[in-house]
Design a protein around this nucleic acid. Structure first.
Lengths: 203, 203, 203, 203
DNA sequence: AATGAATGAGATTTCATTCAT
DNA sequence: AATGAATGAAATCTCATTCAT
């Protein structure tokens, strides 16, 4: 039998790539940087991935999957009232922010760097955002069906608008880790805007 | 009196850079691509810019300035009622979307590519977003002061949240030009969310 | 008693190398290709050969030996008349062509690829051709001695010239397997040239 | 105007490539070797050739053209008698040998190295040999038509056989420059074989 | 002022070779 | 004995930058 293969080697490389791509950007990061981060020979990377783009592809997939996991943790049709839905948005917002707080590189990778590597990755990125929009749309549609959201809501577009608000928080953090402090304020602002609106309450 | 030979030359280079960077991405675009787009020798670029990064820097500045122009076209304290503010948001949204529709490259440059060139550009990008947030915050604060926006609004954060919604539209278009069709629906969704909220009207 | 584990293994590797070197060329063929052809681990090759060059060396030796076998099958002094010698050349020619027909890779290896690996192999190749020339020279010298070949023949050089004709047939096949069809025509042309000459018979 | 282009730069690179490829073999020779031979930066090579293979292609073309020049210098139908043809073969043989003597690398490149770079070059090489065979065939056909060569000659195949003899001389030199001494003996042996045959003259 | 020939740093990728298992 | 994971030397190629003209 050969020298035993390091079992988590492939994942370790992806972890290192995640870090290094986020730190230097995809193009500026070299395979040697990757390998150096791990303390392995750079040729080793090529035992697990055909080329640099394939590494990026796998990193993006993992990153998107991690986000999808959070988004999909709740059921779209689990809420029957506005108050329940509001609570649900709180929970999802919290978890997402937690995710981006725990791994600030995630936002940088997903919302800036890896989405522009090539047409294929651009496509996969767009598809993922579409899927996230579909999730949000399902929540909204449930609310409209049950009567606690306004019937004239443009469900598809509003879903994207809402996601824009939410992911902008992640982008903030990606741009400036100091934005992490905004976590609670951000979620509160989003929820307030969505459910209470901007207008002053009429007495 | 102009120091450089041809005063229009520098701008022409920036125009070409804007186009080429948006088409191929900053790193993939070469100085030769840039000069080729203009039909000038690539050595000439170095008479107007110290290096490639400086070109990117100037392109980003111009792009941000173009956005700032639109945002700053309205006066934050020009509105005294909710209806007026609503109309103002409509106008600003329309003009921004018009800008990104007229030049879809703009979004790609500002929201993806040039912001990740290096720390300095990253910083300038962040500052610009901060400035835009300040603008929006000024509008919101005016509304709170005049009493037509809710007094407990977290003005700073909400400004960023609102900008997130708006700029997400631009990012959509940058990712997929087909999203241009969403223009009116997008603005309507943003305005509805801000002013009418998600909740079904109580009878 | 064999020192190596499996006595046939070494030969199997040489067979595979023969095939793969002929297919892809020495430099383009990797040790992994070689092992893959056999279905063994590529590390195993190094249990039987010190390095890639040693494999080439052994392949070349075997190939040259295979040719030598054919050339040496006849006895140089077995013929006493021109007609007998002519028949002998026919036989040798046929057998050589049969060899190159049965294994078209042989020509590619001997006449192109392996002879240029390094100075040592280049030398061994030259030596082998010298030995083949010596064989042919022995046939010619026998003919001169017995009086049925012209006495003023430059035996050494003519031997090389004759071999040139013969091996050129092999090189043809190595360059283009379709040349195999020429087999009989080729041998007839060589024999005619050698024994009948180009000139029209005088009446 | 730019720094004036070295006028013979492209040719100088081909000369250096000719030398270096012949010395180390195509694959073992690096672009850096090439550039080093000339004392220029290796990047400069890429201003004149798209890649290494293109350099090889141009070197092969030049080498084949140089041989073709010699072969085509005589007219196939210029001879009316066996004696004239014999003299012509002498002349062509001499010139070819002169060529290979003046540039021993030529044989190595044409008959060994560059012909195996890839399928395209292999094809071009084969075509060139075919063209050379066509030349020789034209000479032979002329002789047959005029009646001084035997009417039953297989013109096509004999042309290749004859070329085999001739080019084998070049290959000799390519393998071992010492073979240059054989020049006159070689030509005499070829001519004798072609026109006098091997057989002892009958009294 | 404008040019583009020249350069070499640096990136990706391949693969012969080693060696722990 | 056999394996194949790991390695890094070395090769090809790109391109930002310089600078003679």
């Amino acid at each position: 039998m050969a020298r035993t293969a390091e079992p988590g080697r492939r994942d370790a490389i992806l972890d290192a790539a995640h870090t290094v791509f986020a730190r230097k950007g995809y193009t500026a990061a070299s395979i040697a940087d990757l390998a150096g981060e791990l303390g392995i020979g750079h040729g080793t990377v090529y035992r697990y991935f055909g080329n640099k783009r394939d590494v990026a592809s796998a990193v993006l997939d993992r990153a998107l999957a991690r986000i999808a996991e959070v988004v999909a943790a709740e059921l779209p049709d689990a809420t029957g009232t506005l108050a329940e839905y509001r609570a649900q948005v709180w929970r999802i917002g919290h978890r997402l922010y937690e995710l981006f707080a725990a791994d600030p590189a995630l936002g940088r990778l997903v919302f800036f760097d890896l989405a522009t590597v090539d047409d294929d990755l651009r496509g996969r990125h767009r598809e993922a955002l579409d899927r996230f929009a579909d999730f949000t749309a399902a929540y909204l549609r449930n609310g409209v069906d049950r009567g606690f959201l306004r019937p004239d809501l443009d469900v598809e577009v509003t879903a994207r608008v809402v996601n824009g608000m939410v992911f902008e928080g992640a982008a903030q953090v990606a741009r400036d880790p100091a934005a992490l402090e905004l976590r609670d304020a951000w979620i509160r602002a989003v929820v307030t805007l969505m459910f209470d609106g901007l207008a002053a309450p009429t007495p």
